[in-house]
Structure formats: C-alpha cells, structure tokens
C-alpha cells in the first residue's frame, strides 16, 4: 500500500459518501445520473466476487463492503425512495448505458489476463468502470446547471483515478513483477474522460463562477 493508492481509495470513498450524504440529507438526486450509479453498482458487484474467497487484508475487505453497500444504496434511493425518486429526471438521463455493458463484456472475453470466470468478470468491471461516468457527464452537459455537490462528486471520482495512475507508476518502479497493462490502459482511458470536466471545473473554480459545461 502506498500513499497514492491510499489517497486514491480515500478520495473514492469520499466521492461515494458525498453522494450518499447529498441524497440522504436534501432528499434529492437532481443532477445525478441513475444510469451511472447502476453501472457503478455493477462494476463493484463484478469486481468483488472474490470478497469471500480471497482474503487480502481487513482494509481491502472493509472497503469492498463499503463500496458495495453504498453503491447499491444509492441506486435504491434513486429508484425506490418515495421522496428522492421524484427528483430523478429520467427524461434527461437518457444515455443508453446497456450499450456500454455488452461491448465491455465482449472485450473482457477477448482481452484478459486469464480466461477464468473470476478474471473475466474482474476485467469486465475494469472496462465498465472506465465508461461508467459517461451517462453522468452527458447529463451534466444537458442540465448545464451543476450544483456544487454533483460537481464535487465527479471531481472526486476523477481525482481517485488520477491518484491510482500515480500508484501504478509507483508500483511499477518499486515492485519488479508488477505489470498490469489492462488495468493501466483502462484506468488511463477513464481518467482522460474526466479531463475536459476537470478543465471546466478548474476554470469555474479559478474565475469563481458557476461551473458550466459547453453544450
């Protein structure tokens, strides 16, 4: 465990907690894409299949449980909570995210480190995580007005993946056999998807104006 990875995990945890806090306190999910949340729940469900088989550390198991419970709770809140669901704007959240699932699965069947069920599901979850933010970014572009909690949520998600890239660089230089091209390329693609959001986020922060994404 290195500082980049710990910081990455904490940032990732913060992003999920910010979102849960927003939905739980103001009982609203305005500006949040349910599709992205469903994709994230699927990412964690397919990535943490080894939750009960491979014990790595208490930290690892604890974090996996937190991510699983929080991501499914967020989906439940938006879909079933009597007050929150009213603020879900399904007419705007129209990204056909099922079209992301199949290509990621097919790609995982073709490009993986080992042709086993667990490894293919793990690789699928990596590819899916890389594109899971797309419905949310499309929704942000559509609704234009980004409330700062949603902006912080997306920012923290991007920051977590950027820190993971530093973690992979660190591990590459410190651990002789640490080579995971699939993880690195997928993580890089994911981070690049956030690049333009970061640009506009910093612009709005620097000029102290409301965050607006170009249509």
């Amino acid at each position: 465990m290195n500082i980049f990875r710990l910081a990455g995990d904490m940032t990732h945890l913060a992003s999920v907690l910010v979102l849960l806090l927003k939905i739980h306190t103001i009982k609203s999910c305005a500006g949040i894409s349910l599709k992205t949340q469903e994709l994230y729940a699927l990412v964690f469900a397919t990535r943490y299949l080894d939750l009960f088989t491979d014990y790595i550390s208490l930290y690892n198991t604890l974090m996996k449980l937190i991510f699983l419970v929080s991501s499914f709770s967020i989906v439940w809140y938006i879909r079933h909570h009597k007050i929150v669901r009213r603020s879900y704007d399904k007419d705007q959240d129209t990204f056909r995210h099922y079209f992301l699932v199949l290509p990621c699965f097919l790609l995982a069947l073709v490009i993986n480190e080992k042709f086993t069920v667990k490894e293919i599901m793990w690789t699928f979850s990596l590819y899916l995580e890389a594109v899971a933010i797309l419905p949310q970014l499309v929704l942000l572009q559509r609704t234009r007005n980004i409330d700062n909690l949603t902006g912080q949520y997306v920012f923290l998600l991007g920051a977590y993946r950027s820190l993971y890239i530093l973690n992979w660089i660190y591990r590459y230089f410190t651990e002789p056999h640490y080579v995971h091209w699939i993880t690195w390329i997928s993580g890089l693609v994911q981070t690049l998807l956030y690049a333009d959001f970061f640009y506009y986020y910093f612009q709005s922060w620097k000029n102290n104006v409301k965050l607006e994404l170009p249509a």
Binding site: D54, Y55, I56, N60, M63, N167
Partner: peptide, 10 residues
C-alpha cells in the same frame, strides 16, 4: 494471502 494473480487493489 495475496497469490500472484489475484488483484490486491480495489
């Protein structure tokens, strides 16, 4: 224990 191929990252 972390075997070689298992993934130790979240």
């Amino acid at each position: 224990v972390v075997t070689g191929d298992s993934h130790d990252e979240l």
